[in-house]
Design a protein around this nucleic acid. Structure first.
Lengths: 229, 229
DNA sequence: GACAAGCAGATTGTCGACAATCTAACAAGA
DNA sequence: TCTTGTTAGATTGTCGACAATCTGCTTGTC
């Protein structure tokens, strides 16, 4: 018997594809916060009936990036400064925990994967592909969650990631400047390879704070704009 | 204008009611782990069509208490010892965070609500209503999350609660002994009213560990039983 | 002109039927 | 006997149509 591991084949339901399409549209900012999703229009565009579309939307509502009001409609969640603060402060706590749990599990495969994902970020950065840059950066960051060997923690992180990705995408979209070309993950990766766990935890917190400041400034702008209405 | 606050009226969609019914059935253990949910049968029993039932099931899948395999079916999640360990270790971290954030927000209303919920637990305990005892104990515990003023944290806790409630219900169901009559929450409540935050955090961790030991023993039993198949 | 009642139009919620897929039992062949 | 192909039944996935609800406009009345 050959020692070949087959991975499970992809889900081939329309529902699953719709979920993926919608999620991507929301997380890249193509569907803007507060925007209403018209079931009939979308189902016609996608050439599917409303049943699988509605089921897909229910999933995304539970995932926290859509919100639904009975008989009124389903909307992309609004983003407030407080949401971003809340998400980040929780992320800091989870990061510390994930690093603590991952630390004793680190091995060569971990380091290799770390490098691989780091490389992906650098490549997206060079290509000036902002969307992909956000995606890959979050994947790099997510490695400690995948290695923490705690399924509930991983799930929680993945839920949080959806929002973080959305926040970053909105932020990037708002400012039309080019993406920062320098690599901000060098130290993070180095510390994860090192032997000082506390230092890694501290840096994770500080590094996040860095991007956070910018994001928060953007969020405050949103607030001000909203209060005018 | 009278100063009357109206709360939002209940969602009157079949879907919402189905979600509530199913969730309750799962969390009280009426639907057992691993059990398959036959759409036709359930929809006939509830006298609804399969559409709202399926949408409800999608929600519960995302909520983490159901799992779905395309063209095969939707099942109540299986419970392993590791799941319980994972949920609890995350819960400890979140507890510490929630207490830290709630601490400066405590006021008279907080203390009143704390007493009210504590009373509810004691009442359920006296009435030997195990299901309600679990429910009220988790609600008491959830107060620090509601007062932490962090919506993402609260959401995360509520997701985790579903599982914890399910684990406890299974545990209680497994052992046919009567419920412990003593009140294990006295110290917890007292510490939350006190002035030593660290002590409260420490106790939250230890107290949970207490129940945890029992739960874990039960989970290991599950493991062993499963490995025979 | 202000305001309430009532009437379209559009949109969401629900239904019953059909199509796609899986499972298990059975038959055929090596 | 074991494997492989076939088939029938059951179950899930998807569709199109209808019912319930909301929104905004119009109309009529004061």
């Amino acid at each position: 018997m050959a020692k070949l591991d087959f991975s499970p084949i992809a889900d081939t339901t329309r529902r699953a594809e719709i979920v993926a399409l919608l999620r991507r549209a929301i997380l890249t900012g193509q569907l803007e916060p507060g925007q209403k999703l018209n079931e009939l229009r979308i189902s016609e565009q996608m050439r599917v009936s409303r049943a699988p579309l509605r089921e897909a939307m229910r999933e995304l509502v539970q995932e926290g990036i859509l919100t639904s009001i009975p008989y009124a409609g389903t909307f992309v969640i609004e983003v407030t400064a407080k949401d971003i603060i809340d998400a980040y402060s929780l992320n800091q706590v989870l990061d510390e925990f994930a690093i603590e749990r991952t630390w004793p599990q680190r091995d060569q495969r971990f380091f290799d994967e770390l490098d691989r994902r780091h490389e992906a970020v650098k490549q997206a950065t060079r290509a000036l592909d902002t969307t992909r840059q956000i995606e890959t950066a979050l994947q790099l960051h997510g490695l400690i969650y995948e290695w923490a060997d705690n399924s509930v923690l991983l799930e929680t992180w993945q839920r949080l990631t959806s929002r973080l990705q959305m926040y970053f995408a909105l932020h990037q979209r708002a400012r039309n400047e080019p993406v920062p070309a320098e690599d901000v993950h060098e130290t993070y990766v180095a510390l994860l390879k090192g032997s000082d766990m506390r230092a890694a935890q501290r840096h994770a917190r500080e590094h996040i704070d860095l991007d956070f400041e910018e994001l928060l400034a953007y969020a405050r702008g949103l607030e001000k704009r909203a209060s005018k209405n």
